[in-house]
Design a protein around this nucleic acid. Structure first.
Lengths: 131, 131
DNA sequence: GGTAATTTGTCCGTATGTATA
DNA sequence: CTATACATACGGACAAATTAC
């Protein structure tokens, strides 16, 4: 029973290796979809599936007409949270993504108090500090 | 410049409506891809694009050979967190997903103390209570 | 245990639309 | 205006996993 690695999974692995190796620094563009098709000898759906996963995890950000760029990592701003708060994390709705100007693949930190949401924070830019 | 709604976006909206209306209760299966193709008169890629989005947000869980089921919502277990901790949220790595037996589209709650990760919790099953 | 049917996964081809440079 | 790049959408074909019988 050999484990078989789907083509798009293999491609994800290779792209991650290249990013880690510094071949594509944060903020730089990956090769275009067509170039990736040529470079790796795979089909369009394979490339797009791989990029879709990397987007869904926030590793790359794709801009139509431009390309897929390696995500910049932000320094998170600290937000205080005090006794009695309840903290959860979840994915944003479409509307929350628009309102908070978030890119795909980024979760939300939600602070609740007395059952009400008192803070909804993009998790790539904020950290909570327990006071 | 009229705003146009892509077919897969429309389909996402319709499926969400049906889920909300109770047509597909948590744990139940959505119609198969072929059925959705027939029901909505669209191509398979449109259906698969829509399901991919619903998976990426954790709204459905797809099992090959079975189908896409509406995600069960768990009651979150409370975990205490004490003064001085730093809390972030992020998407899990593939390895974390395996180790914690997570489904796609679910973020992690990470508790740090003195710069070290002292807890890594699936955000759909855990909430943090500030003590 | 084995086969067939069902369902999703992968891969490819083609075409057209939209955004950016 | 043109070229490039990604987005959407249809189609076919076969592979892999599951289930029913």
């Amino acid at each position: 029973m050999t484990v078989y690695e789907p083509a798009y999974r293999r491609l994800i692995r290779l792209i991650r290796q290249d990013i880690k190796a510094g071949e594509y620094p944060p903020g730089s563009l990956l090769p275009s979809e067509n170039r990736l098709i040529q470079i790796h000898g795979v089909g369009r759906e394979t490339v797009r599936s791989a990029l879709a996963v990397l987007r869904s995890t926030g590793e790359v950000v794709t801009i139509r007409g431009v390309g897929s760029q390696v995500r910049e990592t932000f320094d998170r701003d600290d937000e205080p949270v005090t006794k009695g708060a309840r903290i959860i994390a979840r994915m944003p709705t479409d509307e929350e993504m628009r309102q908070l100007d978030m890119t795909p693949g980024v979760p939300l930190l939600v602070v609740e108090r007395d059952g009400r949401e008192v803070a909804v924070l993009p998790a790539d830019r904020k950290a909570l500090i327990v006071k």
